[in-house]
Simulated assay, not measured.
Amino acid sequence: MRSTVAIALLVLLGVHLSNATSYFTEEFSDAGWEGRWVLSKAKGAEQGAWKWTAGKFFNDEEVQKGIQTAQDARFYGISAKLDTPASNAEKPVIIQFQVKHEQKIDCGGGYVKVFGSDLSQTEMVGDTPYHIMFGPDICGSSTKRVHVIFNYKGVNHLIKKTIPCKDDELSHVYTLVLNPDQTYEVLIDLEKVESGSLEADWDMVPPKTILDPEAKKPSDWDDRRKIDDETDSKPADWDKPEFIPDADARKPEDWDDEVDGEWEPAQIPNPQYKGEWKARQIDNPKYKGEWEHPKIDNPAYSKDESLGVYTDLGAVGFDLWQVKAGSIFDNVYVGDSLAEAKAFAEKTWKVNKDGELKAKEAIEKKEREEREAAEAKRKAEEAAADEEEDDDEKDEL
Rank of each mutant, 00 (worst) to 15 (best):
R224I: 01
C139A: 10
L211N: 12
I149A: 08
K192H: 01
V177D: 00
V155C: 07
D167M: 04
K217W: 10
S219Q: 08
R224H: 08
P207E: 05
V148A: 10
W202D: 06
K166I: 14
H172Y: 10
G196R: 00
L190Y: 02
L158G: 04
K166T: 14
L198F: 12
H147P: 02
K217M: 12
S141K: 13
R224P: 00
Y152W: 15
K208A: 06
P164M: 08
K166A: 13
V148M: 12
A200C: 00
E194K: 04
K192S: 10
K217Q: 14
N156T: 14
V146K: 04
E185Q: 12
D168P: 12
C165V: 10
H157K: 11
V146Y: 00
K166H: 12
D167S: 15
S142D: 15
P218H: 06
Y184P: 00
E191L: 09
R145G: 03
A200F: 01
P164F: 06
L190D: 07
L158K: 10
D201T: 04
L211K: 12
N156E: 15
H147D: 10
G154T: 13
K217A: 08
V186S: 05
P164D: 07
G154W: 10
D222S: 11
K192G: 05
K153Y: 15
P164R: 11
V177Y: 00
H147G: 05
N151E: 14
G196T: 01
I163P: 03
Y152A: 11
T143W: 09
C165K: 01
I210T: 09
E185I: 00
T183R: 00
K153E: 15
M204K: 12
Y174I: 07
R225F: 10
D181Y: 09
K226E: 15
L187E: 02
V173H: 02
L176H: 03
S219F: 07
P206Q: 02
L170H: 12
D181T: 10
Y174M: 03
Q182A: 14
V193E: 11
K217F: 07
I210G: 09
P218R: 04
Y152P: 09
K216I: 02
H147L: 14
S197G: 03
D167L: 01
S197Y: 01
D212S: 11
D220W: 05
T162E: 14
T162N: 14
E199S: 04
L211R: 12
L187P: 01
K144D: 11
D212T: 10
E199T: 09
